[in-house]
Design a protein around this nucleic acid. Structure first.
Lengths: 347, 347
DNA sequence: AGGCGCATAGCAAGCGCTTACCATCCGCAG
DNA sequence: CTGCGGATGGTAAGCGCTTGCTATGCGCCT
């Protein structure tokens, strides 16, 4: 039924060992023999049996990339960058490394399950992107799992997520707090005092850090932090729209809306416009991440640019062992404030 | 070093066979025994060896999803939908199905390599999303590969891509031609006669079909199809921007710009604005796909909405054998014209 | 001419798991 | 009290490939 190494060997009149060797190219094989084997492979349409090979060799060339939401360009951009460094098919000729992205949907259970699956496959490396859940139980489970992975020789890199101590995982953390602070400072400097904040889902590191940055800035400027001005909602456009309605209901006097992410900011902008409010004349709006579409919003979105591409690429290189991990296994990636048309002085 | 089935068996005082059976749960095992085994698994932190298991069982639960550009929400949305139907971790309790997305970058070679990799892993199913290359040689190679996959029992589903006859692959095709036609008709009805067309990269089915629809509409209305009005460029914002500059240089008298995709349309909009042209007062702009951000553009983008989510979900269900393939193995998915603020009558 | 060493190729022992088939053990019918 | 069938558990034969070690053949040195 299916063609095996032995079949190829028979047709090429050599031993299975020889076929294996020409296929892996890590052992001298005479040119004539090699060609005979290659021809046989071709004639028979032979395809290596991955599991058998991985079992015998006790290694695999799988690299897993975990993302919270694959439909969100924030993750797509990082995943793409990681993957471009993995090489993947097309990288080096023989480098049959396979980078696979796994969509956790932000669920810690799924994250854990995917890690186990990757562990089962004896993955060569795993890159976890984006913020993490803060549920202590899950955080613990994840930490344990990461430790086991690194112990088994799997390289683990966190990209855009806080370090997890004592796991051997390398972390490229985003300076979410600093970005949040700078964004709020920008609005404060423009004269805003009543700033609505769309904070993202609760219980996630990204949400908390950006919010903390926001509050730091408020405190530093002696502005009261009215709890009514903060609304939590998922990281998508629709939720941003709804949350903005809520915000407007609670505090009709706000002069600015800060969103924890560009997608949410877009939803906020739509909600404001639908209420007849002009941006930034009536209300300023700002986001976070600087996704590609943000510059095309109306008006262009003020936001914090995160070098997703660069960070992802670096994570990929570290995962491949092509680059030294940062000293201490932790590096912080900073964002840059991009002031554009969506923010201005309060009315 | 690593814990194996045998270790667990020893600790639970049963045979390896029994352990395997409780793990796979497809054979009666006394409750007491099962619990003893599970405890041992837990105590030892045992993780099944995927390759070994796949080899012995001669099956795998891998499902591959091929996308052209993972950073593009067009693909992200489909991939996410496919994956939600696969179940993935978290689907059913025991359903350790792993959906992996593979980023081909639009390169036929990579596409082929990923298919081979998936074939190596004896994937349970493969979903190919988005348009395909039209290079006859590659098309042939892909067709051959798909045939071999289906012959080996791998379910193959094409989502948003034309059918490939005689391969056993099920196709959910997008009506790109019809969408292109309706979009152009919309502009023609508004009175436009000089319509620039940003066509996407050459040699791809999506590009060609949308362009053909555009030309059909022009022909049907007796409007001359000036070659200078069509520019090819990659499917990204930057390219859309540049191509629009080129278009404006070639035909300063155009009154509308039609883009083969929303992302490109956004770039076009930016280019027009930077030239001081107002949308739609001076130039109308339209896109294709209706990605989530399109409604937030300035002004909101007229476009053709493709039910990416629904199509992806259906593809996933078919791939899982949860839904009957359409009769003949081919179904056409239609788009819906969404008229919004970015199009209006010519100046 | 004899021997040595290198370049190749083959042998065979697993890698860790699944599963067909067989062995037990027990309860209960006869 | 014997025998039989169902419920469990064990035995062992692979699954297809990799790789350490061994065997072979040949050119060339002394």
């Amino acid at each position: 039924m299916t063609v095996t190494l032995a079949d190829v060997a028979a047709r090429a009149q050599v031993s299975p060992a020889t076929v294996s060797r020409v296929l892996n190219g890590n052992y001298p094989v005479a040119v004539a023999t090699r060609e005979r084997v290659l021809r046989a492979v071709d004639d028979l349409d032979y395809v290596l049996n991955g599991p058998a090979s991985a079992l015998a060799a006790a290694t695999s060339d799988l690299v897993g990339i975990l993302v919270n939401d694959i439909a969100d360009p924030f993750f797509g951009i990082m995943a793409s960058a990681v993957q471009s460094e993995i090489g993947g098919p097309g990288g080096r000729a023989g480098g049959e490394r396979m980078a696979v992205v796994c969509n956790t949907g932000g669920s810690p259970e799924r994250e854990l399950t995917y890690l186990t699956l990757l562990q089962r496959q004896r993955a060569a490396a795993v890159v976890l992107t984006g913020g993490a859940s803060e549920d202590p139980e899950h955080a613990d489970a994840i930490a344990r799992k990461l430790r086991r992975l690194t112990e088994a020789g799997t390289r683990v890199v966190l990209c855009g997520r806080p370090p997890v101590p004592d796991t051997g995982a390398v972390a490229l953390t985003f300076d979410n707090r600093g970005g949040g602070r700078r964004l709020t400072e920008h609005l404060l400097r423009l004269g805003h005092r009543r700033i609505g904040y769309l904070a993202g889902p609760e219980g996630r590191t990204t949400t908390r850090h950006r919010l903390e940055g926001h509050r730091e800035a408020l405190a530093a400027h002696g502005v009261e932090d009215d709890p009514a001005l903060t609304v939590h909602s998922p990281y998508d456009r629709r939720s941003g729209y709804d949350a903005t309605d809520e915000l407007l209901r609670r505090a009709p006097d706000l002069t600015a809306v800060l969103a924890a992410n560009d997608t949410v900011a877009l939803g906020a902008g739509a909600a404001l416009r639908d209420k007849g409010l002009r941006i930034p004349a009536d209300v300023s709006v700002a986001g976070f991440d600087d996704l590609p579409f943000s510059i095309d919003a109306s008006p262009a979105l003020t936001t914090v640019r995160l070098p997703l591409q660069e960070a992802g690429a670096r994570a990929g290189r570290i995962a491949m062992g092509k680059e030294e991990p940062p000293p201490g296994g932790v590096a912080t990636v900073h964002g840059e404030l991009m002031v554009r048309g969506s923010t201005g002085g309060p009315r």
